[in-house]
Amino acid sequence: MAASTKMKTPYQNHIDKADFDHVYEPAEDSFLLIDALEKDLHYLKVKNPTFCLEVGSGSGVVITAFGMAFPNTFCISTDINFKACEMSATTANYNNVLLEPVNMDLISFFVDKKFDVIIFNPPYVVTKTEECGGTDIVASWAGGVKGREVTDRLLNMIPKKLAEDGTFYLLLIEENIPNEVVEIMKIYGYKSELVIKRRVRNEHQLVLKFYK
């Protein structure tokens, strides 16, 4: 039996457009991340993850797409924005995926080394430090210095929370200086690989993966 090599796009028509005033609306970056996971589908199927966590799940499209492709994986999501947690729950529900959203900063409340897969599409826009760190829609894009303030805090937690043989997928743009991220992760003992990249208007988006 040939396993499917495609990931399905979750149904999203249940979402009231007005809710996107408060929660990040799925955009090219969201779909690039789904495409990256699809590109890595074979690798992930072999890994057969037990626990998958999406950090900052927003509308929930990415983790729901993951859950649809991996019915034997338990999916958890976090977001600093409570409304995003609610929307993630509904999106998963409409697509028959079991998802557990928790409203928290990054992954700070989880026990160590449980997650086989961690996924993050961070707030990556370069802004002033003061703009980043909120809990509303601004937190969906405002990334502070180099657009990396939120991402760098997560990088620091990965060695503790990711399972030893786990994989971490991270979306970045060129302005975030991906090479620096690769260097930081190398210091933490991780190898890295470029999974996919795409130019969207003036933005160069890419997805990196990290593993030991």
């Binding site: 600093i80 409570f82 947690c85 609610e86 729950a89 959203p101 928790v102 409203n103 928290m104 900063d105 700070s108 409340f109 809990t135």
Partner: peptide, 14 residues
Amino acid sequence: SKGIPNMLLTEAEV
């Protein structure tokens, strides 16, 4: 609430 645990902290608690 609504099935979602709220674990947001103030800076002083971290």
